[in-house]
Design a protein around this nucleic acid. Structure first.
Lengths: 318, 318
DNA sequence: TCTAAAGTTTCCATTTTATGAAACTATACA
DNA sequence: TGTATAGTTTCATAAAATGGAAACTTTAGA
């Protein structure tokens, strides 16, 4: 007993004694606080005397003659109230984390992502801002490979990239797709040719092919057609330029090609045979799990693209 | 599990979990904090997951891949540190009560207490001020009966009164005594008379007697001598005046009578027979027990009068 | 691709702690 | 002086905290 009193450092369980002390004080006695605390009188008695022993002061006079605080008891009561207020403060700060998201969301977007009308990233950002107005957004435009590595190493929370080869370290959430079709421009040998005729002499190796200089479904698609890439570009507009030059074949997103088609400056090359779909997905890292604001943003992205269908196989977990 | 997470109010035992969380964070992992916390790894694991469940947030990523705080974890860590600082603050405030006495000490002194050289109250006050410089002193001068009732009802902490009839509600700490002897003045029938002769014709009922108008040993002494009180006074100087008038007998404290004796203005009346001793004691209330500053002041009083002998029977406890 | 190592979690037996009922003590009031 | 009230102590029981063994998971290295 006396030993523990000497070690006068308030241990964690003693907070409970402090709380009991305050309640008893407010009720003006043990018997009255019994209901309030919902514990037996003997327990209250033990708690109060434990607390007195622990802090080494007599806190209150009690007995049949009534209940009253000692001078020291009044002081301790004051400090105790302050302490409980601090605990409540901690609690409310925790609650705050729950309700108000803060910090910075680092979002990455494929720097050459076309202005696909299916992409509703702006809508997602709008929805996110409603949910988490206190989160600052940081958007970076980079090639898919950079985005993937940055999400993997945690220096970016989430990114939107065309799905190519899925990494086991990332989670992929398909958002929208775009159709890619092979086109040629005015002056090209295949321009204006009947699709039936094109299909018959479809030897793509005989034509120059323009593709992206980075790892993408585009390259894979070109290879599978037997095309030899003779021009590399980094930007979509550059690719369109090459196609329109009449010297190159190249994949254009349907929504990009649309205007060119209307003006008669590009011609599809065996669309049914060459067409492929490029799916854009949000990537987050698998481990450590993304934080709450990232999860919320991911939900915003999903919701904004909910009406769209995706043709992506979910990555199998190890 | 989920149920308790919903009840997201931080209970008292959870403070301990918070402390564990901070330590683990500082150690950078469970294994490292095992020594620091001196509890088993499985216990730490349970504590952290309990805490996460309680506050409903994932605090840290842990596993073979290492230990790292989540964003929320960093925030919680910050709040947790603040919380522990509050607890430490409470602790130090308690320590402060231990070391520094504060408040007001309400002291009562018998308003007609003679300037007895044995009374060392001033010395006690000086010593007390050294020990408890932050305690304000409030000194009231009142008749013994008032002092006793004020100490009894707690509106006064301690008082110094002549001991008359001891109350079972008070504790008496004898401090100093004064000798009271019966005197007469110039012109009185007994003045200058040989003590032997006085003793022979000691019929005090035949003389006018002056005594105090309040309950005191003085009154009791006068009664025991068969004297009839024909003059009542409230002040000691008034009594001395009556004695010196030569018409009254009256008790004077020896140290008061001394100067009058030297100037030949008073004459002792059978000193050996009439003399009685009046003991002054500090009174404090028995229950509730006096607070610390009162106890300390009482010790100062005792110490200041330690060299003096007292002839008072300790009050028997019920 | 496999294996060893490191870190965490789960399960379970043991110890510790908390609790309330009943008996006990002390005070106030009639 | 008895009776009701307020708190304390004791003790048996219920609840929890704890640590060790084993299982699990991921990383690093062969």
């Amino acid at each position: 007993m006396a030993k523990r009193a000497l070690i006068h450092s308030l241990s964690d369980v003693d907070i409970r004694l402090v709380r009991v002390f305050i309640t008893v004080t407010e009720c003006g006695g043990f018997a009255a606080s019994e209901l309030e605390l919902n514990i037996g009188r003997s327990t209250i008695s033990k708690h109060i005397s434990d607390l007195e022993m622990r802090i080494g002061l007599k806190l209150c006079n009690r007995g049949p003659s009534g209940f009253s605080l000692t001078q020291e008891g009044s002081q301790v009561l004051q400090f105790a109230r302050k302490l409980l207020a601090s605990i409540d403060g901690f609690q409310s700060e925790i609650d705050n984390i729950h309700t108000h998201l803060t910090g910075t969301l680092r979002l990455g977007v494929f720097d050459q992502s076309s202005t696909n009308p299916n992409a509703r990233i702006h809508a997602a950002i709008g929805a996110f801002d409603e949910l988490a107005p206190d989160v600052a957004l940081e958007i970076a435009l980079d090639p898919p490979s950079v985005l993937e590595s940055r999400v993997t190493d945690g220096s970016m929370d989430i990114a939107i990239v065309p799905v190519h080869r899925q990494s086991s370290l990332l989670n992929y959430t398909p958002l929208y797709s775009e159709q890619m079709t092979l086109y040629c421009g005015v002056g090209h040998a295949l321009f204006g040719m009947d699709q039936e005729a094109i299909r018959e002499r479809l030897d793509l190796g005989a034509h120059k092919y323009a593709g992206y200089g980075f790892n993408s479904p585009n390259m894979k698609a070109g290879q599978s057609l037997g095309a030899t890439r003779t021009a590399r570009v980094q930007e979509e507009e550059a690719l369109a330029l090459l196609v329109k030059s009449g010297k190159y074949l190249g994949y254009l997103a349907d929504h990009v090609a649309e205007t060119h088609l209307r003006s008669g400056s590009v011609w599809p090359v065996a669309p049914n045979e060459t067409r492929y779909s490029s799916t854009f997905a949000a990537i987050t890292r698998r481990k450590p799990e993304p934080d709450r604001k990232t999860v919320v943003f991911l939900e915003c992205l999903s919701d904004s693209h909910a009406d769209q269908e995706h043709a992506i196989s979910p990555h199998s977990r190890t």
